[in-house]
Structure formats: C-alpha cells, structure tokens
Design a protein around this nucleic acid. Structure first.
Lengths: 121, 121, 121, 121
DNA sequence: GTGGTCTAGACCACT
DNA sequence: GTGGTCTAGACCACG
C-alpha cells in the first residue's frame, strides 16, 4: 500500500489519497473485499495527519467505493455500481475533451488512451 | 456571452469561468481571434468581482488559450497547440476512466461520449 | 527577513518583494530549503496587504525559485536550474548594456561590476 | 526605422519604443545628430496612438538621449554622457546577475555575452 | 494557523 | 475606458 503523494501539488492531499485508492481499485491492485490499512497506520506510513486520511476515507465511503466497519476498519466494496455515465462524469469528460482538443489532441489519440486505461489501469 | 455559474459549487468561480470559456472555444461558440468581453463588463454581467474575472483571464492567458493585447483587451488565440496528450492530460484521463469504471460505465459507453464531445462540443 | 521597499517607486510592490527575495537567495542570505515567512507574517512585517505578498510568492513559485508545501508554507528551492542564458536574460542584458554604453560606461567597468555581483551578491 | 513591437508583452508600448531607440543608438544604426521620424509618422508606421510615441520621446529626452526642437523634430544627441555606473544601473545589473545565477548561468557566460553586446550591439 | 478565494471599493498607468 | 495594482476586510478549505 504505497501511495505517491505530491505535497507541492495544488490538489489537496486527501484528494490525492482518494484518487490513488480509486486507481488501485480500478487497476485491480486493490481487490473487492480487501481490507484497507487503518487510518492511523496509513497516516504514519505516508507522513500526513490522520485527519487527512480520515477525510479521504469518508469521501470514498460517501461515493460508495468503500465501506467502513467499526471492527474491521475500511474495506473495498464488492458491488460495482451500474449507473452508467452520470451527469458529473459527463461534465468532467466534456471539459477534459475540450482541453485535449485545444491542445491539439485528435479524437483517435484520445480514444486510444481511453481504451488503454480501461484495459490496463 | 452567457456563462452558467454555480456559486454553491466547490469549484472556485474563477475556475468555472475558465472552464466555460474553454468549452466555448472548443465548441466553436467562441471563434479564434474573437474578442472576449472586457474584465469589467463580464464581471458586471455575471455579478462577480472584477478580480475574479481577472484571475480567470490570467489563467487562460498563462495556459495559452487567449492573448491580451494592450490595446484591444483579450481575444481567443488563433493558433491551436499541437502537443498531443501531455502528462497532465493523461493523468486526468486515467483518473476519470477509473472513476467511470467504478461506476459501471463500459468502455464503449465512455468512448461514445468522448466521440460525441469531440464532434459537438 | 527585512526587505527594503520603496512605496513611491514605479515598480509594483509585489515585484519589489520578488526582486528582494531573488537577491536574498542569490547572495546566500536565504539558503536552499530555508523556510520563507508566512504570507501573513511577512505582510504584517512590511506593512502591505497579504494579497500583495501572495502575488510575489505566486510569481516566485511560477518562476521555479521557491516551492510551496501544503504543510509547511513556502521554502527556497534547492535545485538550481541549468538552463544557461535564456532569450529573456539575453534581451535584458542587451538592453542594459546599451543603456550603460549611452551613459559612458566602459566595457571594463561593466564587467568589473558584473564580477563583483557574481561573487558578493 | 522599423521597430519590432510586441503588443502582447507586459512591457508598455512606449517603453518598448524607448528601448528599441536606445538599442538603435547603441548599435550605431541611429547616428548622433540623426533626425528621428516625427511623432505622427512613426505612430502611423507602427500603428499606435501618437500619444504613445510622444511619451517615448519625452522619456528619451528626459534621460538625455535625444533632443527635441520645434522646427526640426527630434534628433539623437551627439554628446555621450560620462557618468559611469549610476546607482540605477548598478541596481539593475545586480538584479540581472542574481536572476542569471539562479538560472545556472556562469560568470564567464554572462561576461562573454556582455562583451559581445558591448562590441556588436 | 495556513493559504486560497472572494468582495467592494480605490487609484494609477496605459492607450 | 481599459487593465494593473493595491487595500482592508472576510470566509472557507486544508492540515
């Protein structure tokens, strides 16, 4: 369970932790039902305040990606949602496509990267 | 030049303005070389402080999407960059794909939306 | 951390702060890795608005001379760039040499001053 | 008399005009006693307001680099000042050296460029 | 307690 | 009339 954090990034640390865990689940490094480290141990490991890790876990729980149990700590949720493209995802994708277009990325290039990330990570 | 802002969003207003302008350029609503509203007029129109609009313009300028001519104010840059997928875009896409996967979005669905945004907006 | 500002100068205050910090780093008064004062404390010390100091720090960060750690505030960057004479530096130097020439400064005098500043400050 | 102006630069246009004329005098393209274009003709040629050219001429006159005569317009001053390094020049050079140092420029490199500009331009 | 964001003014430099 | 700069507050997100 090694997360790579950038303390100089403009992305809040709790969000970076949340993102890394999502990437872990998506790529299969974190399996459904697997136990996540306790807040305290993870906080020590990556050298941040435990409040920060707590905030990341709360966010992941609220988004439905993990569950928290008083006895077992946090674990990856087994059930995958089937909501399809939500409004929020659509908005994010639309903005990202626009940014890519303005950077001269072709649709083919963008889709190729998307496919790769769907398969690999 | 009507922007839809959400003052209760956790996305800063200056960033929402920046995003909306990028969407406008990408979708062709704002043409290359077209003059953007002055800072003051846009600020008045959407009911925010002029420094907030200023911050959005500064950001867009720094990102290379608009230029500011000392005589004429800001205008959409005509030259489109040809950098292809940057590290930053790849990271954003990778995270977005992961979020989509965890929401049960299929690769086909994701790519279909991408194509649509590339064509329409 | 005492900066000498001239409030009647036509150089903006945020630029003066930026210049003084660059002089401090260059002369060794500010060591690599050293913590800079917080925005608020520096603003109070020199009697300007905190947004003015913020602007100076943002500029220095953008230029790569300092970094801002979300936990510890701003600090002097340890890595010195190795880009050599950039186009911007060349332009500035060319103009400065021309101004010196028109003021009757000899090449020897100019170079002697340059050497001194390279060694001392 | 062709000046290269950058209307997107953060340097005011009148200052760019002033700089270009100084470069012209220093490099010998503009000879002592030579007549400068009239304010109106220069303004038309480079497409700026004549007030802007006027400001540049006023500044050059105040700095002692040109003289203005009601009948003959402006001309390059023949007398070269012999003040040596002024406080202002020293300050500018000190800051420029510091910026160069932080960019990894060596003293030799800096001096070599200085010599070149003293000889050529 | 830190920086990030925002406001409602104001003055000035520039064109 | 434009953007650039600055002020004196304020609130919030972050850690």
């Amino acid at each position: 369970m090694l997360l790579s954090l950038d303390f100089e990034s403009d992305i809040p640390i709790y969000m970076q932790i949340r993102n890394q865990i999502i990437l872990g689940i998506s790529s299969g490094k974190l399996l459904a039902g697997e136990k996540l480290p306790t807040i305290r141990s993870l906080a020590e490991e990556i050298g941040v305040n435990s409040m920060t890790v707590n905030k990341a876990y709360q966010l992941l729980k609220q988004e439905g990606f993990i569950t928290t149990d008083r006895r077992n700590g946090a674990m990856v949720k087994s059930v995958i949602k089937s909501g399809g493209m939500t409004k929020e995802l659509e908005d994010k994708l639309c903005l990202l496509v626009s940014e890519a277009k303005l950077n001269g990325v072709s649709a083919e290039e963008f889709i190729a990267s998307s496919k790769r990330f769907f398969e690999e990570g």
